[in-house]
Structures are given as C-alpha cells and as structure tokens.
Design a protein around this nucleic acid. Structure first.
Lengths: 261, 261
DNA sequence: CGGCTTCTTGATCCTCTTCAAGGGTGGTGG
DNA sequence: CCACCACCCTTGAAGAGGATCAAGAAGCCG
C-alpha cells in the first residue's frame, strides 16, 4: 500500500525531466576507512587502530548516484547503511495526498539509512540532489563485527542516538519557532556542518530547492523565499539564487540562540 | 548553562505546589524480566530464553517516582535506561525563553532515556505525570551483555531505531498537519498504545494537561481545547475533562489516514 | 528560441495565536 | 467545614502570521 502511494505520486507529482524513479546502477570499487579523508567525521570516528583495521576488512562498496536518482525507496528491504563520501542526499516520504515530506538532508561524512533497522525496511526514500557517492555498509556484517568488537557496538549506538538528537532538535524547531527562526536555524545548521568539513561557514551553495527547504521546515516555498528576502534586507545574508553568503553570522546566531539555549 | 536555564525556569515557571525539582529517592527492589507481565512489549520482546536469563541476571532495580518528581534532568549524566512498569512519564526540555517543549509521553512497557547515549548526558528531562514505577537498566551492563550476546545488540539497535521512527512521525505531524489532524493523530496513537497493553482503545484517561498536549503537538492550549470541543460537537468524542471516550473511532482514523498513508 | 522550472513578490484569506473573562476543581489553612 | 487560592479548562473576540492564489522575471536545456 505504501508502494501504491509511491507509484501514484511518481505519476502525478514528479516532473518527468527529473529522471526520478531511476534506480542507480550498483557498485564499482572497494574502499577503506583508514585512508578516507572523512574518517574523523564518519563511522570510524573515535575508533582505535585495531577496530579500524577490522572495519577495513569489511571492504565497503562504493556506489555513485547521479542527481535525481534514488539510493533506496520507502519500503525497500533494509540491507545497508550508507556513508556519504561526497555530494548531497535528501530523505523524504510521500504522504497519501501525494505531497512530499522531506525529513533530512545529508552531506559528506554523514550516515544514512538508520531508519531501516527497526522494521527491516526503509521508512523513507533517499535521493541524490547532486552527483553523489556513498559507501555501502552491510548492516549484517557491521552487526557481526559489533558482536566480536567491544567498541563497535557503542559506535553504532552512538550514531543512532545522534540521529535521535537530530530529529529531536528538528521537532523543537517545528514545534516552537516561526518562519524566520526556522530558516535561520536551518542555515546555521548547514553552516556548522560545512565548517566541520573544512568548508566556509559563511558562504555555500544550497543543493535543495525552496520547496524542499520548506517541506523540511514545515512551511511553504513562498514563505521560505520571503524569509530569504527579509534576511537579505536586514543585511544578514546575500542571496543569489542558491548561493548563500552569510554577512552577519553573529546576528543570525542571535536570532536562533534566543530560542534554544 | 543549561543548568542555569533550568534553575531560572524553576523559579519563574514551575508552580511551587507541584513539588517539581524534587529528585525522586532511589531504589527498592530487584526485578526479573522473565516474570514481568510487560515482557512482550518491553526490552525483552523477541528475545529467546537464553538471552532472557542473561537479562534477568542483570537484576534491574525498581524505582518509584511520585507525580511531579523528575527521573532525570537535562544535562544529567547518562547511566541508565528506564523501562516504565506503570504510570506515565513526560520528557521535555526548556527553551531559553523559559517555555517548556514536551518531546514525548511514555507509558508502561516503553523505554526512556535513549537520548543520552550520544553524548553521555541526557538531552531532555523526564518527569512523572502520575505515580510511576520504572526499571533502571544500567547501560554499561547492557552494553557489556550485548558484546557477548548476539541477539542483544540487535534488540538495543531496534529499540533505538524505533525511537527514530517515532520522532520521524512526529516531525511529519508537525510539518504537515493542521490543529485537528494533530490532535486526532495524538489520540489515535494513544489509543493504539493502550490497546497494545490490553486497555480499552476507546476510553482512557489523559494524564497530561492541555498545555502539555499543546506543547507536544506544536499548538497552544486554547487550540487544543477548541479541537476537543470541535470533535465532541462532531460526535467523534465525549470529553469530560481528561477522560476521553472515542465514539467514532473509524471517522477519527479517517481524518488521520487521509494524510499519512 | 521556446518551453519549463524555479524563484520572487503582491494581494487576499484563513488558521491559529493572543488577550480576556468566567467557571470548575482540588488543596490548604483558618 | 468553609473560604480562598492556584490551577486548569472553556469560550469569545481581535489580531498576526503564514497559506493560498496569481502574475511575472530569471535561468536552464533541448
């Protein structure tokens, strides 16, 4: 039945041009965490050398996803977790009235797919917003490894708990902030995540549309657009389509910090 | 700083009479999962006899929390998970402007405290809405057990993933539903959870105030009250203060199912 | 170039919030 | 035992914020 909903939506709401619904072709090369430049951010973060070697032995498969292709869909069997190597992913699910509800955006070093553990099937779909590459991590292999490796269990648990915290803060945002505060929170969150990856925290390119931002933040695309314009007029941002330059990061932080400690 | 926020809020916002801020006194008896009537719902759900025996050997401590007392507070060191034996708990955190944001309600058989795994400290506070009893599950003991026990690891992971799904659906609710739809979803969710515990799915007593429901659902208490009145007028509910009788469960479901498959 | 998508901006409408008042209830102390 | 207070809930009226509807501009691609 969720499949039916998906199909219905493909027909009605997805622009033909976007090549959505095209499943990405599978797999090329094997990758090792120990040589990955993302190892400080990604799964191996905080792991000792012994554990890291074991992780390497799993031999993760890399997989490329072109913009508009899906990594997995709602209801797909859950087999792997995915670590983003580069690019941007969007997770979303489709409401029965056909509208899309975006539940997250994922950039390099972030782990995707944890929602599948509970039921053995993915609870949402994940699609690439630009050409993207991921490491496919077999969940059974990882679980087996966790049994024999003391630290690994905790690493996985921590990843999941982090996901809980992420959703937690989004809930708070949706529950208690107005439009401009939501957008400020969103931009600051992106800014932080880019900064942690060595990119500028004041200037970046959005990979998602106004509508996708709006869905994620629980507001309409027009409202997102108006909030951008308002920030620009107030001298907080310079906005050129999807290119964002934060000109007054402190004031932007202030807007957000007022609400959540 | 979060402590400061808490103190400030205690003074300003918590009614003196409620005896809030009083930490519950610790511990009485040891409990075994194998003899617990909640074992089909709680942590041991899906566990084999061997694993269950191992779980029993951990010897969980029971702890009583009186209405208005806190189980743990935001920022407290994370040491235990808690399984609710009976009663009702509320998880929430305090925004810097002093308002409370409720993030969940927990009834018998549900697990509380998973938000602490990521950072070793609790990200929210949890308080009893009525006299409540929990099993305190040492997280380190559970983690040790998970290392030696194949199935245990997955049980914990599944618990966490379930929490992710729960927050997921709440996000969707906050992002895409109007006031009446939110309240319908809330009542249906409660109804299901009570039914799973052998209670009536059509008649129950709310343990939380309109303001707490409102905070959880992202709306004001007046709006909650109006939605209750509207449902009553439409013949869906009979409401007497906190006592709820669902007179047209199907129609109520319909309101919700329209939105999320 | 034309068609399409995305974004911006204006005008209007509607939902929910805010403000305000009144009733009911439980607990406490005189 | 009753009076009073604090709290919770309900309901009305007014107001604000965001949704919706609509039009047009800018960029992209075949």
């Amino acid at each position: 039945m969720s499949t039916a909903a998906l199909e219905a939506r493909s027909i009605q709401f997805i622009p033909a041009a976007a090549s959505a619904g095209v499943r990405a072709p599978v797999a090329q090369m094997k990758t090792q965490c120990s040589t990955c430049h993302l190892r400080e951010l990604c799964l191996p973060c905080g792991m000792n050398d012994v554990d890291l070697t074991r992780l390497d032995n799993l031999g993760f498969t890399r997989r490329k996803i072109k913009a508009g292709e899906t990594l997995y869909r709602e209801g797909d069997k859950f087999t792997h977790l995915y670590a983003v190597r580069f690019g941007t992913l969007k997770s979303s699910l489709i409401l029965s009235d056909g509208r899309e509800q975006v539940s997250g955006f994922h950039i390099a070093g972030e782990l995707v797919g944890l929602d599948g553990v509970a039921q053995g099937r993915h609870a949402s779909a994940t699609m690439a917003l630009e050409d993207t590459e991921v490491c496919a991590i077999s969940y059974t292999a990882l679980a087996d490894l966790a049994i024999s490796t003391a630290g690994m269990q905790h690493i996985v648990s921590r990843m999941m708990s982090r996901e809980i915290l992420r959703e937690h803060s989004l809930m708070m945002l949706l529950g208690s902030m107005n439009a401009e505060e939501r957008l400020a929170a969103f931009l600051l969150n992106l800014s932080q995540r880019y900064a942690a990856r060595g990119y500028s925290d004041r200037e970046f390119h959005l990979r998602m549309s106004r509508a996708e931002i709006g869905s994620y933040l629980g507001m309409k695309l027009e409202t997102v657009s108006r909030a951008f314009s308002a920030f620009q007029q107030q001298g907080l941002l310079e906005v050129d389509k999807r290119h964002i330059r934060i000109t007054d990061l402190e004031e932007l932080k202030h807007r957000f910090d007022v609400r959540v400690h």
